[in-house]
Design a binder for these strands. Structure first.
Lengths: 120, 120
DNA sequence: TTCATTAGTTCCATAATTCCGTACTAGTGA
DNA sequence: TCACTAGTACGGAATTATGGAACTAATGAA
C-alpha cells in the first residue's frame, strides 16, 4: 500500500484542498517573476498548457528542473491543477474553485501584472 | 558632498519613485507573513506607527535587526514611507501615491488577508 | 558639556531556500 | 525491446533570510 503510494507520486501530483489554501501561500507563489508570468499566461489562455510550453520565458531559457519546481510551487499554493495526459502534464488554473475566497485578489493581481507588462 | 550623503543614510531612508515600483516587488514584499501583517496593520490604522510597535507580531517576538530588514523591504518595494521624527521612524503606507497603478490590487490583497485572519 | 536611554541600522556568521545539472521514471509508438 | 519525449528526484552550489552584537543618531537629564 505504501509502495503503491510511492508508485503514484509521479502520476498524480498533490493538490491542496481549497480550505488549505492561504493568502500568504498565494503571494509567495506569485512573488517570483517566472511564476506570475506562467500563471498570468494560463489565466488568460484559451486552453490548458503543458509545462514545456514555458521552457522559454521572460527572455531566457529555463532548465527543466527549475521549471518543474516552479510548477510544483504554483500547484502546492493551490493556484493551478496539473493533470497527466499521456506523457504530458496539462496545467490549468483553479480560478473557479478559488473564486469565492480569492477571486477578486487573484483577478486584481493578474490584471495589474498584465497591464504592467504591456507598458514595459 | 559624498560624505554628506553617507551621513544622511540613517536619517532619511531611500524611497523609490512611483515609476520604479513593480508588481513583482510588491508581491515579494507581501510574500512574508510578518510583512503583510505589518502592512495590513498600517493600512487599516488611524495613524502612522513607529517600527517598534511591531516587535511583538504574530505571536512571537522579533529581533530588532529582523524587523528593521522587514521595514526596509516594504520601503524598497515602495509600499511604505518611513520618516524620522526625533529618535523614531514613523511609518505609513503610500496608498495615495500607489492608487492609480496598484490601488485595486493592494486593496484586494489587504481585504482578503484581513478576512482570512478573522476566520482563523 | 557628558552620560544614559531609546530607536533603528549595519555587520557578519549561520540557517534556510532556491537553482540547476545529472540521473532517473513513466508513457508512447515503432 | 528500444528510442524518444515529458517531467520528477536528488544533491551540491549559489543565493537569501535570520538574528546577535556592535554601532549611529536623537533626546533629555545632570
Amino acid at each position: 500500500m505504501s509502495s503503491c503510494a510511492i508508485l503514484f507520486i509521479m502520476r498524480t501530483p498533490h493538490h491542496p484542498q481549497v480550505e488549505e489554501i492561504t493568502v500568504e501561500g498565494i503571494l509567495h507563489a506569485f512573488s517570483d517573476p517566472v511564476r506570475i508570468e506562467i500563471f498570468a499566461n494560463l489565466a488568460t489562455a484559451e486552453c490548458a498548457k503543458n509545462c514545456s510550453t514555458f521552457l522559454n520565458i521572460q527572455k531566457r531559457i529555463l532548465p527543466k528542473s527549475t521549471l518543474s519546481m516552479h510548477f510544483r510551487i504554483l500547484r502546492e499554493a493551490g493556484l493551478i491543477r496539473s493533470e497527466r495526459k499521456g506523457v504530458e502534464l496539462i496545467n490549468s488554473t483553479r480560478c473557479e474553485e478559488l473564486q469565492d475566497r480569492f477571486g477578486p485578489m487573484i483577478r486584481a493581481i493578474v490584471e495589474t501584472y498584465v497591464k504592467q507588462q504591456k507598458t514595459v
